[in-house]
């Protein structure tokens, strides 16, 4: 919308010509200037400028929907009301049906915890025919760390859905729907595929918008994994007023038992819609919903079997406070 042309806005001919003459071509050009700057630049009166800006704004503003029509549209048009079930009953219930379409879901956890296992399973589920409860779709698996294993995936498939995998050719058909891309780095991937993105204050910024809009406009689930790093000593975790309001030296309860935080910082954390944390705590593996606008903070113990990840208990443990965000790595 930002790059729409002024000449297509249905402005009065004389006004449109003035804009063109001053090299103000797109909506973005106009809306980045104030009314008075436009008056100076175009040499026209205030009234004409405000009228033109109002008209341009109205046309370039995306149409609205009521939340009700949004809901009904999703229910009608989308299989399973827009969720990819993970087949982990407890987690699916907590997430209202599974990994939602149209948003970015992030998996965070230390190395070897099972992020890749989870992703392989999701890829499998998405390619599973609709008649067996999958999405029957194609999967793009961007394998930055070269960890994708077809053998493991087939093994998972054989143990979780033996009836499907023993059918003739079906396994081959499903595996054929999964495309694995192996870029040397994420930036190489995005540059090659979609042209160079501008590198600005946040080297990540452009990818964030891109991945989000990819999920949103294609209405597909997008799952990303993220690594952990150790927490720096003077990591910001409090506001100025919190530091001032307390006499005792600022001590963070989280710092004693956990020294891991998700990589990429707070800016990225704002951008993901759902964050699932995988951790190991006193020898048990735990998957927690750390951020989600529809689910409560809840955690499930799991282990990794030949069929992928399986929950030990569908009940789940309720997480109190910021506990859901901590990442433990023991045992």
């Amino acid at each position: 919308m930002a790059n729409k042309l002024i000449s297509e806005m249905g402005l009065p001919k004389s006004t449109a010509n003035v804009f063109a003459a001053r090299n103000i071509i797109t909506v973005k050009d106009v809306l980045s200037l104030s009314d008075f700057e436009l008056m100076e630049l175009l040499d026209v009166g205030l009234e004409e400028v405000t009228r033109a800006v109002a008209q341009i704004s109205e046309i370039s503003c995306p149409p609205y929907q009521t939340a009700l029509s949004l809901l009904e549209q999703r229910k009608q048009n989308e299989y399973l009301a827009g969720h990819l079930p993970t087949r982990l009953t407890g987690l699916d219930t907590a997430l209202c049906g599974g990994i939602p379409f149209g948003v970015v879901t992030e998996l965070v956890g230390p190395a070897g915890i099972g992020k890749t296992q989870f992703c392989l399973k999701l890829a499998l589920l998405a390619s599973l025919p609709i008649s067996f409860g999958g999405l029957g779709g194609r999967v793009t698996y961007v394998d930055v760390e070269s960890k994708f294993s077809s053998r493991r995936m087939i093994e998972m498939g054989l143990t979780s859905f033996p009836e499907v995998f023993h059918m003739d050719g079906l396994a081959q058909e499903m595996a054929g729907r999964i495309v694995v891309l192996r870029p040397a780095s994420l930036s190489e991937f995005t540059e090659r595929e979609f042209g160079q993105g501008p590198h600005r204050q946040h080297p990540l910024g452009w990818h964030v918008s891109f991945i989000k809009s990819l999920a949103e406009f294609s209405r597909i689930p997008v799952v990303v994994t993220n690594q952990v790093r150790s927490q720096g000593r003077d990591e910001a975790s409090r506001y100025l007023f919190q530091v001032q309001s307390r006499d005792e030296p600022p001590k963070d309860p989280l710092k004693f038992d956990s020294h891991l935080v998700a990589a990429l910082g707070i800016h990225w954390a704002h951008a993901v819609t759902i964050r699932l944390v995988l951790e190991s705590k006193s020898g048990k593996r735990l998957i927690k919903i750390a951020k989600s606008s529809i689910s409560p903070s809840i955690g499930f113990f799991f282990n990794i079997t030949t069929s992928g990840i399986s929950l030990l208990d569908d009940e789940g443990v309720e997480m109190v406070g910021p506990e859901a965000n901590t990442i433990h790595c023991q045992g």
């Binding site: 930002a2 909506v27 973005k28 503003c61 609205y64 929907q65 009521t66 009700l68 809901l71 949103e216």
Partner: peptide, 29 residues
Amino acid sequence: PKAFLDNIFYFRICTYTEQIAVINYLEKF
């Protein structure tokens, strides 16, 4: 409960230009 949803006008904004446009347009809306 669905009547509540009918009274929420939802705009999805994808660029900052659109954000400015929608705020300009709000007055009329």
